[in-house]
Amino acid sequence: MKLIIGGYAQGRLAYVFRTYHLKESDVWNAEGTEPYQGQKIIYHAEALALSWIAEKYLALWKDCIVITQETGSGLIPITPEERHWREAVGQMNQQLAAYAESVERICCGLSMYLKQEHSHVDSDQ
């Protein structure tokens, strides 16, 4: 899995299309109502934060490029529902990032690796 994280309107999907030579028909939008049919790109993964089941989705998406929303660097939301959602997205993103071979953060349409594929850095040593 490749994880793409970043803020709203930062050009994450356009970056994925450009970099990985994919197109609109490769996208499954988690915000929509269509069932998942094996698409390569999972878009708006944050929409599943409240129904997140790590074992299920990590296995299902193991060869996917997952695009998620970066949250948490703002005011504490006023309603308990929003606070709960924000925390759930954060937890989900952590699990996705731990599982993914690579994690890229997108800002202003540019990418920065937070975690690299085939990295020989072993955090246990």
Binding site: Y8, Q10, Q69, G72, G74, L75, P77
Partner: peptide, 8 residues
Amino acid sequence: NDIFADRI
């Protein structure tokens, strides 16, 4: 300004 990393 970077004001994008939170709930929409």
